[in-house]
């Protein structure tokens, strides 16, 4: 069946099964591989994207549920060479290690700061529930605080 999606400002029409999770639509149909597959059960957050401004885990989000919604992925954060302040804070604090979870982390952090521009440590604890096996959490917290000041 044909589904029309708005991804990073572009409108795309795809002929796919309606239960295909948004994650695989982004990665395999639209070539946006910055969004990662980690668990497939909305547990780890590696697949986090924004749907109408809200951070959501795309691995369990069927495409039929997001037609018409504004979808934003990691690829849309920077404008050319100008990085989003969260991305810049991530570089300044040398956050990523293997880097695999970081797209999801950054998308979760961007959504948090859009909703709550000056989050406390407790706010960050509550909002960032993604998993990082390299253990970059201390730097993530620091980078979010830095981005909040930027």
């Amino acid at each position: 069946m044909a589904y029309t999606l708005k991804v990073n400002g572009d409108t795309k029409t795809l002929n796919i099964e309606g239960d295909t999770p948004l994650l695989w639509v982004l990665r395999d149909h639209l070539g946006l591989t910055g969004t990662k597959f980690g668990c497939g059960v909305a547990s780890c957050g590696a697949c986090t994207v924004q749907v109408d401004g809200v951070a959501m885990r795309s691995c369990v989000l069927p495409v039929e549920a997001v037609t018409g919604a504004e979808i934003r992925t990691i690829e849309d954060l920077a404008h050319g060479e100008i990085l989003h302040k969260v991305q810049q804070a991530w570089i300044d604090n040398q956050v990523p290690q293997c880097g695999y979870c970081q797209s999801g982390m950054i998308m979760a952090a961007v959504a948090l700061l859009e909703e709550n521009p000056q989050p406390t440590d407790e706010d960050i604890d509550g909002a960032i529930t993604n998993i990082c096996r390299c253990g970059t959490y201390q730097r993530i917290r620091k980078a979010i605080h830095q981005a909040a000041k930027a």
Binding site: L32, T33, G34, T35, T73, I74, E75, L77, A78, L83, Q87, W90, I91, Q94, V95, P96, G99, Q102, S103, I106
Partner: peptide, 10 residues
């Protein structure tokens, strides 16, 4: 390797 890991390009 970090710049490519904050933009999804890595």
């Amino acid at each position: 390797d970090i710049p490519a890991k904050v933009t999804g390009r890595a």
